[in-house]
Design a protein around this nucleic acid. Structure first.
Length: 399
RNA sequence: CGGGGUGUAGCUCAGCUUGGCUAGAGCGCUUGGUUUGGGACCAAGAAGUCGCAGGUUCGAAUCCUGUCUCCCCGACCA
């Protein structure tokens, strides 16, 4: 390929079609025998897309994503991989981001065009709109046939490889923000927080400032010395001591809340007098979330326990909100009203046709977010056409 | 590219309908003092070609014409 000298960019930008084309073009040269399988390539790629309107974090013209591509000798193994990766994404969303998700399959209309089927995780944001947070595709032999990728099996026969692909993107950051944050600012779940604990020594004169800062440093050292475990990804806790005495304590408290640091420790002269400190938890902003008079000797272990509790509470709170705004619904008239206000996820019977899906989307702006794995497994009648339905599917307005 | 909105101090905005003293407020900034456990207080002060160009008028941030900027809604892709 030659670049037009007059159109050459300072920083070269390569625009390509869907990743599968370049991956499978390459796999053709790598796969000859069943011994070459399974094959997995993961890449981080900066993606550029034409977007009529962008939305911070959720729909940017350029974004970073992770994408994996696998090739397998059997259909069953590829399908297993598709489900396995969806589970990896579910665990990351729920256990690290504290963002509850529904798992399920996309409808024919919503799946990736090159896929046999698409699985997804779907989250509910605080405005009750849905966010697709990750997808995992079973591609069948579609790309192997398109790029003629065949391998010789144990039996000596030529067979087309079976494929999957899956990915998540920086969109997850938008999801994290829109799941947990409040009017005081960002709320970051402890397991992903760049700073776990901020310690604010307080003092109105140099003597007090020096004394409280020393205790703050000691506590910071205690926290960093705590045993490493899986909760922190086997890394040490990150602790910041805020010595900005120029600003008022109240200003500093608010500023750290704005940044979403999960736990703040306040150490002032009064605490020093009683060998104690104050713990403030970000998931309960303001004075309500404060634990007064925590003995300094216990502070490190109490903070460690508090971080774990906050992680759980954030997930439970988000899940309770999601569940409180997810309803079974059977009347299309009622659906049309409730999708407008209050909104949320609606479990409804659908006859499985594109026509009905399109009609609902056109009339209500709601789409099928997923055909859930674990919900609504009952037969019924489509809320629009009355035709038979095998199970309920999730409708919502989405980003 | 259509429809709607917007542009005034570093930031957020009021003033425009119905032209009229020297264009305002909050926040921020500077100086001095008092303060410091939830975004400190008092006082003084600096700071604006009212997006740009033209026009109407004795007089334009305000009315008219043109032009530009940014934002919102619209392409079935979330």
């Amino acid at each position: 390929m030659e670049v037009d000298p007059d159109a050459k960019l300072d920083e070269e930008l390569i625009v390509r079609p869907t990743s599968e084309t370049i991956i499978w073009h390459t796999y053709k040269n790598w796969i000859q025998s069943y011994r070459d399988l399974p094959l997995l390539i993961n890449q981080w790629a900066n993606v550029v897309r034409w977007e009529m309107r962008t939305r911070l974090f959720l729909r940017t013209a350029e974004f970073l994503w992770q994408e994996g591509h696998t090739a397998h000798a059997t259909e069953a193994e590829a399908e297993e991989e598709t489900h396995k990766m969806l589970e990896v994404y579910r665990k990351f969303a729920e256990e690290w981001m504290a963002m509850p998700v529904l798992t399920g399959a996309k409808s024919e209309g919503q799946k990736f065009p090159g896929a046999v089927y698409t699985l997804c995780i779907e989250a509910m944001m605080q405005d009750r709109k849905a966010l697709q947070a990750g997808t995992s595709h079973f591609l069948g032999q579609n790309f192997a046939k398109a790029f003629n990728v065949q391998f010789q099996s144990k039996e000596g026969k030529l067979e087309y490889a079976w494929a999957t692909s899956w990915g998540v993107s920086t969109r997850l950051i938008g999801g994290l923000i829109m799941t947990h944050s409040d009017d005081q600012g960002l709320v970051v779940p402890p397991r992903l927080a760049p700073i776990h604990v901020v310690i604010c020594p307080i003092g109105k004169n140099p003597e007090e400032q020096k004394a409280t800062a020393e205790v703050a440093d000691k506590l910071a050292a205690d926290l960093v010395a705590l045993p490493r475990d899986e909760f922190y990804g086997y890394d040490t806790m990150t602790v910041k001591v805020d010595r900005d005495f120029e600003k008022s304590p109240g200003f500093r408290f608010n500023e750290w809340e704005l940044k979403g640091v999960p736990v703040r420790v306040e150490i002032g002269p009064k605490d020093l007098a009683s060998n104690a400190c104050v713990l403030a938890r970000r998931d309960q902003p303001g004075k309500e979330g404060k634990l007064m008079g925590v003995p300094l000797a216990e502070a490190a272990t109490r903070i460690d326990a508090l971080l774990r509790e906050i992680q759980n509470k954030l997930f439970e709170k988000a899940k309770a909100f999601r569940d409180a705004n997810m309803h079974q619904i059977d009347s299309y008239e009622e659906f049309k009203k409730k999708i407008e206000a209050p909104g949320g996820f609606f479990l409804a019977h659908w006859d499985g046709t594109k026509e009905t899906e399109d009609k609902i989307a056109e009339e209500t702006k709601a789409t099928i977010r997923c055909i859930p794995f674990n919900l609504g497994k009952e037969e019924g009648k489509c809320m629009v056409t009355g035709n038979p339905s095998k199970q309920r599917v999730v409708f919502a307005k989405s980003y």
